[in-house]
Amino acid sequence: MESVKIEICCGTACYLLGAANMMNIEDQLPAEWRDKVDIEAKTCLELCERDNLGGAPYVRINGTEIMSQATPEKLLTRIGELIEGAA
């Protein structure tokens, strides 16, 4: 299985609206998931100016899926689904 690719937006709006809480998301991953997830910070995903996506902070998963109003809990749940689903 390919690793799950996570891109966290670190633009101003996303950071202030909650991305700051995801900066250490890697440390919150269960040990058995660590080599299955590839986490990256992006300078800006430029999604916040589009008004139909659900609101910042945004995280992009596997290049196409967009999570709006992301929180560490929501993100960990989704990563779990993708890993367990593929297992």
């Binding site: 890697e26 990256e40 910070a41 992006k42």
Partner: peptide
Amino acid sequence: IKVRLADMK
């Protein structure tokens, strides 16, 4: 442009 994980933390 690369942001390292260590820089995030």
